[in-house]
Simulated assay, not measured.
Amino acid sequence: MILFVKLLLAHLLGDFIWQPGSWVTDKETKKHKSIYLYIHIILHGILAAILAGEIRFIPYAILIAVTHGIIDLIKLNFQKKKNKRTWFVVDQIAHILVLIGVVLLYENKNIPPFWQENVFWIYLTGILLLTKPTSIFIKTIISIWAPESKLNNQDNSLVAAGNYIGILERLFVFGFILTNHFEAIGFLLAAKSIFRFGDLKEAKDRKLTEYVLIGTLISFGIAILAGLLVQMLLQLS
């Protein structure tokens, strides 16, 4: 575990702390022709080797540097302005997965329980269920109660912000259930209520308040049920 922490620290230093904005701009403009791309790659290898603190880790540090460069090149060649955020997330996830793989390879450890086939598919299905499918389900169910202000979208909220907030809150609840932190669900619900209270009070729309409350309770209810169901399936698998 400590090796992964050290490699993660090396990644954070190389990708964020010690990578100036000018390097990023140059890489996005020149792609594989940018000298800063290769400096960036070498820096990651050096940081990984130094923080690992073992001579025999050097080949693994080189592996980290090479895979980091490949992942960055893929991102630089495929990302566009409209999907830049998506590629940023994919890029970071890929780097973290490489670090996990290197640690497992270096320490000759067996695949952890999460990555066992049955467990993986149960987790993946549960997580995906709580994203867009649940959003569509909730939207469809409560659409008959949608107030006029909601239908006309007469507010100053960010585009699709409510949808993303709902997905995030369900994933948080899902995580709390699986880690047996049920009390955190109450804290999350209270926090959302506090933030929502001012908006609903100013709107002075009872139908809108009821609409939001129904949607929130359905969202939390589905997340709790999904978490409990996944726990049950994990025990049976």
Rank of each mutant, 00 (worst) to 15 (best):
V230P: 07
T131W: 14
V159C: 01
L213M: 03
A161W: 12
K82S: 15
Q231D: 13
F176P: 02
Y36D: 06
A61S: 06
I167R: 14
H181F: 10
L188I: 03
N156Y: 04
L129H: 01
W23Q: 06
A94W: 11
K6I: 05
A191S: 10
H40G: 00
F114S: 05
A160V: 05
F120R: 02
G14M: 07
V98K: 10
V212K: 12
E148S: 05
F114M: 14
G101W: 03
E169A: 00
D205S: 02
A190R: 08
R206E: 15
Q19A: 03
K82L: 09
S149P: 10
V5K: 03
I2S: 14
K132A: 11
Q79K: 13
L213E: 00
K81W: 06
I222Y: 08
V89N: 12
G126A: 05
T131P: 15
H181V: 07
K75D: 02
V89W: 14
H68E: 03
F195W: 13
A10K: 02
I55Q: 15
L171F: 08
L213Q: 01
G45D: 03
P113K: 13
F78D: 00
K80P: 04
N83F: 04
R56H: 13
F88E: 11
S219A: 02
S193Q: 12
P112Y: 00
N77W: 06
A223E: 04
T131A: 15
I214W: 12
L217D: 07
L97C: 09
K6V: 04
G186T: 07
F176G: 01
L208R: 11
A48N: 01
T216C: 08
L234W: 04
Y164P: 07
F172Y: 07
S149F: 06
G162D: 03
P133V: 00
T131N: 15
F120T: 06
H181S: 12
L3C: 05
E148W: 01
A94V: 06
I165W: 02
N152P: 01
F16H: 10
L213H: 01
V66K: 01
N156R: 08
K33C: 06
I144N: 14
T134F: 08
A203Q: 15
M1T: 12
I138W: 08
Y106M: 07
H181L: 10
S135F: 00
I58D: 08
V230H: 04
I2M: 14
G198P: 13
I111V: 14
K109G: 01
L99T: 03
K201M: 13
I177H: 00
S237E: 13
K201R: 08
L188T: 02
H40L: 01
G45H: 11
W121Q: 06
F172K: 05
T29F: 08
Y36H: 13
G101K: 11
Y164L: 10
T179D: 07
L171V: 02
D91R: 10
Q235Y: 14
T67D: 06
I141V: 10
